[in-house]
Simulated assay, not measured.
Amino acid sequence: MLARLQNIYAMELSLLQSLIRIPSIFPNETALAQWLYDYLRDAGWNARKQSVGEHRFNVLAEKGNASRAVMLYGHLDTVPVYGEWDTPPFELTERGDQLFGLGATDMKGGIFVILEAIKSLPERLDKTIKLAFCVDEENDSLGAYALSRDPFLQNVALVLVPEICDAFPRKAGAISVGLGRRGRVGISLAVPGISAHGANPERGVNAIHEAYKVIAALDAMPLISHEKLGQSTQFIQEIHARSGSLSLPDLCEVYLSRLLVLPETPDDALRDVQEHLDRLYAQGILTPQRGKRVLATLAERETPYYHPYITDKRLPIIQRLLQRVQAFGEVCVGYGRSVADENIFGGINQIPTITLGPQGGNEHTANEWVSKQSLEERIAIYRDLIKHLELE
């Protein structure tokens, strides 16, 4: 028995090693995308490339011709190499149950789960199986937004994503199933000041000092909460100000990141922030500078911001999925605190979307790892869902 498991691990880990060895730090996912495209074509899948700007593409593939489909989804890109690693980030390093490498848990481990799960497809399928591997999740989700507008999704009844699951509540030892995520918006704040010579700062108003007041006011701003998604939160992500000479800066730009809960939308959050600032002016806490007030706008980006979403646990297809997953262990249903491409499929396309990924740690920092045992467990779950989950 031990020898058999060791052989399985050796076979599986060679595939994961291949994924880890191909750098795919956004926006440079092309080598990995091409590798996956070739791999799937060689395995008999009907695969195509979906262009996402110059030299970038998603990989879409399918098998079967049933009227309803389940889509397995993964993102191709990783973050850069952050911090000081104890192991080579582009080599899979095994230490006990932990497998180290850049993207091991976010989310090349999840791609690996998909590739292993589809190896044992039956010859006759009662559903169409679709695969989508997209670029740019760690940035602005250009790949997922391109997919959201493609007819490829028209007959998809369920999206399964073996992504890291930061869902709450959590329970030690339980299988975490994510049924939703908070949304996100970026808000730019232009904080005015009055320029003056640095030798006589009392003659002006330093925009940076004014920004301190705005930041303190935003920290104290009341935010709404949701029974499943938790508290809406916000934080200052960037501050920028400068003057071209020995002068007080007359403008400080502040970037506010806000994580949204239902029923908030990005436009709601923008209006909420602007109204809060207006109240501070009315109370005299903030003062206009030569008639200018703080201006809040949605920060520019290439794609729309993420809306929060929840997949209804009462849907028959979700009830059937949870019953099948429960055969593998105790299940803990939760809701993600961060955003991911699932927000697009669940929020924009309104497709039931589930996050069910392997366990790991240190994503977005040094020594990222994924649990070898959890990979094996998730592969078994995905194989079962592909073969036995009824979509209708």
Results as ranks from 00 to 15, higher is better:
E264H: 08
T265S: 15
T265H: 13
D267Q: 15
D267Y: 05
L270R: 06
L270M: 10
R271P: 00
V273W: 04
Q274R: 03
Q274I: 05
E275H: 12
E275A: 15
L277C: 10
D278N: 14
R279S: 12
Y281I: 02
Y281N: 03
Y281T: 05
A282W: 05
A282R: 14
Q283K: 15
G284S: 11
G284N: 10
P288T: 07
P288S: 12
R290K: 12
K292Y: 13
R293S: 05
V294N: 10
V294L: 06
V294F: 08
L295G: 06
T297N: 08
T297W: 00
T297R: 15
T297C: 02
L298I: 15
A299F: 00
A299K: 04
A299N: 03
E300Q: 13
R301K: 15
R301L: 07
P304H: 01
Y305W: 10
P308M: 11
P308W: 08
P308I: 08
T311S: 09
L315H: 02
L315V: 02
P316G: 09
I318H: 02
Q319S: 14
Q323S: 13
Q323H: 08
R324K: 14
V325A: 02
Q326E: 15
F328N: 06
G329A: 12
C332R: 13
V333I: 14
G334Y: 00
G334W: 00
G334P: 02
R337Q: 15
V339A: 07
A340T: 13
A340Y: 04
D341F: 04
F345D: 06
F345C: 09
G347I: 05
N349T: 01
N349H: 01
Q350P: 00
I351L: 03
P352F: 03
T353L: 07
I354M: 05
I354F: 07
P358S: 12
P358C: 11
Q359M: 10
G360R: 08
G361E: 10
N362W: 02
H364C: 04
H364A: 10
N367T: 11
N367M: 06
E368M: 02
S371E: 09
K372G: 14
L375K: 08
L375Q: 11
L375W: 10
E376W: 04
E376H: 13
E376F: 05
R378S: 11
R378K: 15
I379R: 11
A380P: 01
I381Q: 14
I386T: 08
H388N: 15
E390A: 14
L391Y: 01
L391A: 12
L391W: 00
E392D: 15
